[in-house]
């Protein structure tokens, strides 16, 4: 009976902790950490290790943002979110920023009142099948059973694709990536469809990857990127330009290892502006002058983050493809720091 007391304690604690003020950036500064919505566990993109430390491609962007705001990449709290709870968590202010391979779509941008501030991964939906199925094109999948994650844009794309090609399929809905993998390898479905990056990472972790092929069709555009609340422009700018700083760093050849050296020796005015040696770019965002330097120093530039988490040297083995810099034939392009 006496456990009522518990409620009082908790309420008191929550009330004193949770009084928010005007803008998200000010809130974050007052709170002392960034709340970042993340995957509940997607290998390579965002998952905690056995110590509870978060690692991954999306996670490192959050860490870079924390480094930009506080100069310390550990000042970030990761809130694991499922496909179904992610947007509400962002809308309600539970997280400041959602980096959880979420696709930028019209209705999410307008109707759901969010802002996609950048595209950190250009993706598209593809299919993976077993080699012995003898299928070489997605258009041959007539009558197939297809494993598909619920609560994502892939459901709608899939329906559209089969409709457009006038073929039929049976959907097998699965809850998450791990479950999809299990279903697919057990043979519960002919094809597994999700973002091509996800397919690659899934295929890479199979014991016999050579028995599986990824079909050539990419049936949708899936620009994945960090999301903030609509109307939260100052905070959105921080996230956007932190991301662009990482891109610019790669373009200019600034890495985690050589950043101090570059900072002392560089003559390039843009690098000087980027690293806060010249002008007051940081102030315009409401941050320190060295915000971009701190962000890059955290886990390296975009290319380094890519290689360390999902690149060819990792078990996931994703090629840069569309995500190469524009100078190398990709789509990643940062506006100038000026």
């Amino acid at each position: 009976m006496n456990k009522t007391l518990f409620l009082g304690t908790l309420t008191a604690a929550a009330l004193s902790a949770g009084l928010a003020s005007a803008g998200t950036l000010d809130d974050i500064k007052a709170r002392g950490e960034v709340n970042c919505g993340s995957n509940t566990g997607l290998t390579g993109f965002g998952a905690p290790d056995d110590k509870g430390e978060w690692h991954g491609f999306d996670v490192d962007l959050c860490k870079a943002v924390a480094a930009a705001v506080f100069g310390d990449q550990t000042k970030v709290k990761f809130v694991p979110l499922t496909g179904e709870t992610r947007f509400t968590a962002l809308a309600s202010g539970e997280v400041d920023l959602l980096v959880r391979n979420s696709t930028w779509t019209y209705s999410r941008d307008t109707d759901l009142k969010f802002d996609f501030v950048a595209v950190n991964y250009y993706d598209g939906q593809g299919f993976m099948v077993k080699k012995d199925l003898g299928v070489s094109s997605a258009k041959e999948l007539d009558g197939a059973t297809v494993c598909i994650q619920t609560g994502t844009t892939t459901e709608l794309n899939l329906a559209d694709f089969f409709k457009a090609n006038n073929i039929t399929y049976t959907p097998v809905n699965v809850a998450d990536d791990g479950e999809a993998l299990r279903q697919f390898t057990a043979g519960a479905c002919d094809a597994y469809t999700t973002d091509a990056s996800g397919l690659a990472s899934t295929r890479a972790t199979l014991p016999d990857p050579d028995n599986y092929i990824i079909l050539p069709e990419i049936i949708s555009k899936e620009p994945l990127g960090p999301v903030v609340r609509h109307g939260d422009n100052a905070w959105g700018d921080v996230v956007r330009w932190t991301y662009f700083a990482l891109l610019t760093a790669e373009e200019k050849g600034i890495t985690k290892a050589n950043i101090e050296e570059v900072a002392t020796s560089t003559q390039d005015p843009e690098i000087k502006r980027l690293l806060g040696l010249e002008g007051d770019m940081g102030k315009m965002l409401g941050l320190d002058a060295g915000f971009a330097k701190a962000a890059i120093a955290a886990n390296g530039n975009y290319g380094e983050i890519f290689e360390a988490n999902i690149g060819m040297s990792t078990p996931i083995k994703l090629a840069r493809g569309l995500n190469a810099l524009w100078t190398q034939g990709g789509l990643q392009y940062a506006p100038p720091f000026r």
């Binding site: 179904e84 209705s107 619920t150 709608l156 809905n173």
Partner: peptide, 23 residues
């Protein structure tokens, strides 16, 4: 929900809610 069976929660309280944002 544990096996993504599309019952009332899976359709109305799952995919529909997710696609329309009308939680």
């Amino acid at each position: 929900i544990a096996v993504s069976y599309l019952d009332l929660r899976g359709t109305l309280g799952g995919i529909t809610m997710n696609q329309t944002g009308r939680e």
